[in-house]
Design a protein around this nucleic acid. Structure first.
Ligand SMILES: [Mn+2]
Ligand SMILES: [Mn+2]
Ligand SMILES: [Mn+2]
Ligand SMILES: [Mn+2]
Lengths: 235, 235
DNA sequence: AATTAAGTTTAGATATACCTCAAAAGCTAA
DNA sequence: TTAGCTTTTGAGGTATATCTAAACTTAATT
């Protein structure tokens, strides 16, 4: 693991190994928020992590000292190369674990996020490698999210939100955002709307209208909230 | 998980899940030391955990407050039913994980202890259950240590140390103690002295003499240190 | 240019979970 | 009864992670 070597400096608080939790989570959060808007503001991070902005500020100062982020007062943060490396590694762990829990241990796609969120911080490089090998070095997780490669490469497929499609469009589901929302995931699985599914938009009701999707012989109807969470590619 | 519900009281420090580490480790230590001598003294625990006795005392007070141990100043501790339950659960996790890492992911028996020591504190009940099911609800781990059942039952086989055998005795290896000692484990694997192996003591050299063991067509020689770590049953 | 609202940072606190050292206290066996 | 060992106390340290309230910065609006 890159493992934030900088951290392991003085202290050597005996049984480490479970420490960096918070740091890794912040870096992951920053990475993800940066995909939407960069630099990432203090308040965005505070919202995402459900803490007060003041807490974020002090963590950003810590991360800056560790050279994990470039931080200048009042102007948000960006990850440094080192910070991005850690973020990508944690994300890799998370997504590999999600897929592993499903493939190897029969978990459902709405159950894996929580457990992966914990395990992502504690698996060794060796365990990561064995899991990846078992899975045949996959590039996408159960929710369609890309799995960063060991070298930090990440293959992002160009997608568009289902909510932006016009009637008549044919497309394929590639990714569900907010993979932490178990209820929605369970519901989508029930409807059969999972990554890989092809469909045609047969109707969009007016205003924030529900979308009617033709999937095989069936028509599935989803509201705007769900439509926003489904990313698709054209077939 | 029994999970020390008592702890989760007030604070509710949002992203818990990785906390109880130290507590669980102390309970595990106490459980294991109690097998040798009970009640367990402060200094025994301090040695085992490699901390100062003063640290142990304060942890024991904490554990007593949590009703995990019966503790009376100056007279050592014993686990309460609740404490033993937690200890057994952690041990169950540890041993299931060790076996799982070998069976499912191709780890070697000298590599699994370290990773299991971390993971044991963070797997959910569901993950534990899936792992146990995958393994066919095993009762011994790769080092021959018994795996406590969900209900806390633990099947201890009666064993004797190889070091206590007399020349001519036939026996079978059931268990290796100090499963944390990678080097010894690697060496034993090399010699083919793993749980299940049958052998006959063909010679014991004088003083703290090496033991010569007939295993199939070969004779393997082990010193006293190793002999002490090998527990056997008669065939 | 001055005002203002929104967002951000500081300062000061609180809390918890470890841990240490040094000294006091307690125990036990000769 | 006392020496020697073990254990506990008390004071203190470090690190992490959070909060509130006040002060400040920035950018947009008069
Ligand atoms: Mn890794
Ligand atoms: Mn996912
Ligand atoms: Mn369990
Ligand atoms: Mn073991």
């Amino acid at each position: 693991m890159p493992e934030i070597e900088a951290l392991k400096s003085g202290s050597s608080t005996q049984r480490d190994g479970l420490n960096h939790q918070a740091i890794e989570d912040y870096l992951k959060t920053i990475y993800m928020l940066a995909e939407l808007e960069s630099p990432v503001s203090t308040s965005r991070i505070a919202e995402a992590r459900d803490v007060k902005p003041a807490s974020v500020t002090s963590m950003l100062q810590r991360l800056a000292k560790l050279k994990m982020v470039d931080y200048k007062k009042h102007s948000g943060v960006t990850l440094t190369t080192a910070g991005e490396k850690v973020a990508l590694e944690v994300i890799r762990h998370h997504r590999l674990l999600e897929l592993y829990l499903m493939e190897a241990l029969g978990f459902e796609w709405d159950e894996v996020h929580e457990q992966a969120d914990i395990l992502e911080h504690v698996i060794s490089e060796k365990l990561e490698e064995r899991i990846a090998a078992f899975l045949g070095h996959p590039t996408v997780d159960p929710h369609g999210d890309p799995i960063p490669a060991k070298d930090g490469t990440i293959v992002a497929v160009d997608t568009i939100s289902l909510a932006n499609l016009a009637t008549g469009t044919q497309a394929q589901i590639t990714r569900i955002i907010d993979d932490a929302n178990s209820e929605m995931l369970r519901y989508l699985a029930e409807l059969g709307l999972t990554p890989g599914t092809e469909f045609t938009v047969v109707d969009i009701a007016p205003f924030d209208g529900p979308f009617s999707l033709q999937v095989g012989d069936n028509v599935k109807i989803v509201g705007r909230t769900i439509a926003n969470s489904i990313l698709v590619t054209f077939v």
